[in-house]
Amino acid sequence: MIEIKNIFKSFGSSEVLIDISAKFERGKTNLIIGQSGSGKTVLLKCLLGLYVTDNGELIYDNIYSSRMNDEEKINIKKEMGMVFQGSALFDSMTVLENVRFPLDMLTKYSEREKNEIALKFIDRVNLNDAINKLPSEISGGMQKRVGIARAIVLNPKYLFCDEPNSGLDPKTAIVIDNLIQEITKEYNITTVINSHDMNSVIEIGENIIFLKKGIKLWQGNNKEILNSKNKEVEDFVYSSELVKKLRKN
């Protein structure tokens, strides 16, 4: 579980995160939602340690980030996996090499063991036919699946996904959402997903945090969000005319 307490973050005079507290539970798909510019990505990058918070506390399974020394910070990063918005695959490496990369860099397994582990995770995301292809030779959905395989190949405790289904067609987006949810349950990971996609919210939103202009306005789950009386949340959820009509019916 990850807990954040009273997080503040600003860039120059612009306050991006203001007094945010929340809990992201293990084995659940935790969603951070909100419009563009609401601070979702900054919050995720704070959780990943890519940004240092101005104030507040990040607690990873009862370990306070403020009390960690440099070695502990490196060790906690090794417990994290990240699926990037643009997949962030290494262009010059094949699918197998991309998935094997964290094993090559951070473990002492033999070549055979590393290949076996990488192939197991490639199989888990159904990409057996693409192991020798370069990222440029596969579709956006497949790239996302490679990104997921690479993120979980070290069996992380925490999985972070930055808009994992952006740029994908609705059907592939649901496949990716479901894959992330299945992996979260299967490996009992604390998964935190940034999204502004309502399909994802409704499909996999077990714990949802709604941000607006850097402030947490609401927290609940996918059932509660549809009946929320919070006006800002309602505006976000029912921003589409089509969804409004479906609600009336």
């Binding site: 990063k77 090794k78 990240m82 990037f84 962030a88 964290p102």
Partner: peptide
């Protein structure tokens, strides 16, 4: 620069590299 733009450098940092 391309690695920076496509978040590949962030991916390395997240892995603790």
């Amino acid at each position: 620069g391309t690695m920076r733009v496509t978040e590949q450098i962030d991916a390395l940092e997240v892995m603790g590299i």
